[in-house]
């Protein structure tokens, strides 16, 4: 065996990638040659060093943040898909199925544009886009409640003194209303799923949970936001409030599965305790547990680090 082959075999030996026969042969070579033995010692030291460079496990915050962002991205993707689907359906229904209607509509529109052109076409030079821009910008600049940012000026000012300034104008808005108002609900759900500040998310979920009205929580968008927060939010307090809010709504399989997911995956013992209590209440309300659910409960009754969770899981199974 040449030196290069020996080195390759040493790597595979240490990595436990040799067959029993290859292993035996390699050990014989190692015992019979002092130089190889020394080289093998050096390779072993190298592996010890590499071992110290092993990455730790993912931190849960990073994982939870990534999951939450993914679900948000997927929702955006679904909205895009449904928008595109609607456009296609519209196109199909108007231009393929009802082509006569579409044709007559197109002709009418073309005729209307032509008449409009005859009536309103300017006789002289049309105003430039810059002029329109100046008018709208001037309107914005006279207001005190608009923030101006990202102002971009040209690199050099031309001799005629005409310059174009680009900027973004942001106007703060506020909505006042009852937690049960559809617009307020929609905004709370949006805050819960897209706000990066955990404090705002917590206030949003607390507002939903504290509304005391089951109608606000039974809103599908709110429910979806709560389910997503419960499973994916990086902040345990937000997850806890989401669980409380979901416990108040009419029990169904979605909430049961979300509680089971917390029980199975959440590292926070307090949340697992809250989840197992919520599951126990669901059972009292008549929600059944199918075999995958029972499997999770059985697993938790045997392996969960928290003794209360173990006991409660066993008790749900035994009742």
């Amino acid at each position: 065996m040449n030196r290069e082959k020996f080195i390759e075999m040493s790597y595979l030996y240490i990595l436990n990638e040799l067959t029993p026969t290859e292993k035996e042969d390699f050990e014989k070579i190692l015992e019979s040659d002092e130089d190889y033995k020394t080289e093998f010692g050096e390779i072993n030291n190298f592996y010890s060093l590499i071992d110290s460079g092993r990455q730790g496990q993912n931190d849960e915050r990073l994982l939870a943040e990534s999951r939450m962002k993914l679900m948000r991205n997927i929702r955006i993707e679904q909205e895009k898909e449904s928008l595109w689907g609607n456009i296609k359906n519209l196109f199909y229904s108007y231009f393929v199925r009802n082509y006569r209607m579409a044709l007559s509509g197109a002709v009418t529109a073309a005729f209307g544009i032509f008449i409009g052109y005859l009536i309103f076409a300017p006789s002289g030079k049309s105003p430039s886009s810059a002029q329109y821009g100046e008018i709208s910008a001037a309107g914005i600049l006279t207001r005190n409640d608009v923030d101006i940012s990202n102002v971009r000026l040209p690199d050099s000012i031309p001799a005629n003194g005409e310059i174009e300034i680009n900027f973004e104008a942001v106007k703060p808005l506020s909505i006042k209303g009852n937690v049960n108002d559809p617009m307020v609900r929609k905004l709370l759900a949006l805050v819960l799923t897209s706000e990066s500040n955990p404090g705002e998310r917590l206030r949003s979920v607390s507002a939903i949970a504290g509304s005391g009205s089951s109608s606000s929580i039974s809103d599908p968008k709110i429910k979806q936001a709560l389910l997503s927060a419960l499973k994916n939010d990086s902040n345990p307090a937000v997850r806890r409030e989401a669980l409380t809010a979901l416990s108040k709504m009419n029990p169904d399989a979605d909430t049961r599965d979300a509680f089971l997911s917390v029980l199975a995956h959440d590292n926070n013992a307090g949340l697992r305790v809250a989840a197992i209590n919520a599951l126990s209440e669901l059972k009292e309300k008549g929600i059944t547990f199918d075999s995958p659910a029972k499997e999770i409960l059985l697993n938790k009754s045997e392996t969960d680090k928290n003794s209360f969770v173990r006991l409660q899981a066993a008790s749900i199974l035994n009742d």
Partner: peptide
């Protein structure tokens, strides 16, 4: 989507581990 989420939860730790390493 629930099934998709469950699939993600089963494997995303390993994916994140590979990416971090």
């Amino acid at each position: 989507m629930k099934a998709f989420e469950e699939l993600v939860c089963r494997y995303d730790r390993q994916v994140l581990n590979i990416a971090r390493s």
